[in-house]
Design a protein around this nucleic acid. Structure first.
Lengths: 252, 252
DNA sequence: ATTACTAAACTGCGAGTAT
DNA sequence: TATACTCGCAGTTTAGTAA
């Protein structure tokens, strides 16, 4: 974490330093009263005064008494602290965009229902057009046990997806389907740390589906691909697999 | 300031959110224990636990109990808070590079000494070469009263400058001179707010000098230019002027 | 192992006030 | 006007402990 263990550095100190920085206090002495600071941090003048004394003692700001007022600016170390926090946030923000969403689960039987839906023209045409392939008729079902994954699964709806419109035929309506580009591989193929962002070598490109009206709970993930995934990836029922959602879809 | 007045949001909350973000907790549920958090913030497990409860109540993180452990991730608003702080820091950092250093002072007499130094070959050649002009023989002296400016003046040494080497002749040595590109104008020409970063129309490009061995205190600024500044800028003794240091020199 | 309650110890905020 | 001290109280932190 290494932001500095000035262990008495708190949020107010931070706000004051930012305030100085954003008003040019890196280079020039700003005339700021403790009352102004108190309004900034929503505390009393006394507290603000103490804050400034602290910051001065810690050598984060430099103050010069002029008449009764103080002129103040950031010191080098004061600026460095802000820079450290900034860099930390920056890299965290950047990392946060590249971290993949993962699921670990077990392959279970259940091709019946999925195969039926895949075969419907209303879906088949859209899959072909929007995914670039016609899915093998039948979904691979992966059961997830870990509550964290079950929850992540619910959050999928917030991520970019390829949107397949619903439709109706003579006697019923069919809901929309959201497709998430993903890759699937046997769990052992991944290194122990699931934070790992490298793709394991023998992984297969597939799509994870989210259906408007799901019949099962959030503990089941349905996966489609151009081929019979079990065959092409050499997987069988009961195998533990890892599914990694790709950060790439650019629809809805 | 507008970072959010969740008035109970403190530095620890902030650190926890950053920790989550930098470990991918924007998208995935991380298994983090209160003990881990406690080490991160250097407080007890109990405090960390309360912190997490707070964050959950404020809807900044989302937690799912798995067995005894919690999986947790940032909520949308939790992420937004970090983004706001990040943006604030970002713009502050950017602004801090463009805010000019300013001095306000009064023109005083005193061309004698300056004129002598300017006329020395050891300096004259370097000025010509490094500044691109041969200074008018005589410095313009500006007296600064405000302690904040006097202090800023001392800090000039930390800023990039054009460095003029010292030298010695038969009977004495002459110290180095640092030159800071600047512009000077009559004070009234500036708008009342000296934070203003726009150049006033009728300003003159000059250099502010910092001498290794100064005879006067920090309350006097010596200015040189290619022409007689008083004449070319229509200034006279006693006039109040503003000097703005340019962020551009790229020597020492 | 965990999380988190309660109660006691501690820290920090702000009213009053001096300068 | 300023800044900043003291001191009482409220809010935090933590030890002990339960679940």
């Amino acid at each position: 974490m290494m932001v500095k263990d000035h262990s008495n550095f708190n949020y107010f100190h931070f706000l004051v330093l930012i305030h100085l920085l954003s008003n040019g206090g890196k280079d020039i002495y700003l005339e700021i009263t403790s009352t102004q600071i108190s309004r900034l941090i929503n505390r009393s003048q006394q507290t603000a005064s103490k804050l400034l004394i602290d910051l001065e003692k810690e050598n984060l700001i430099e103050r010069v008494k002029n008449k009764k007022k103080f002129g103040m600016k950031l010191t080098g170390t004061g600026f460095e602290i802000l820079q450290n926090i900034y860099n930390l946030l920056k890299t965290s923000m950047e990392k946060s965009h590249t971290k993949p969403v993962l699921f670990k689960g077990k392959i279970v039987t259940g091709m019946g229902e999925g195969a039926y839906y895949m075969s419907l023209d209303g879906y088949k045409k859209q899959f072909h057009h929007k995914l670039g392939y016609e899915p093998f008729p039948g979904t691979l079902n992966v059961k997830i046990e870990d509550k964290n994954y079950v929850n992540s699964r619910k959050d999928l709806i917030n991520y970019p997806s390829i949107y397949i419109d619903g439709f109706k035929n003579s006697d019923r309506t069919f809901g929309w389907v959201r497709c998430y580009p993903a890759s699937i591989a046997q769990e052992s193929k991944f290194s122990s740390e699931w934070i790992e962002s490298q793709l394991p070598d023998p992984s297969t490109d597939v799509h994870v589906l989210l259906l408007e009206r799901t019949h099962h709970n959030n503990n089941l993930i349905e996966v489609i691909g151009p081929l019979n995934i079990k065959e092409s990836s050499n997987l069988k029922n009961g195998d533990n697999v890892v599914i990694k959602i790709k950060e790439s879809a650019r629809n809805t």
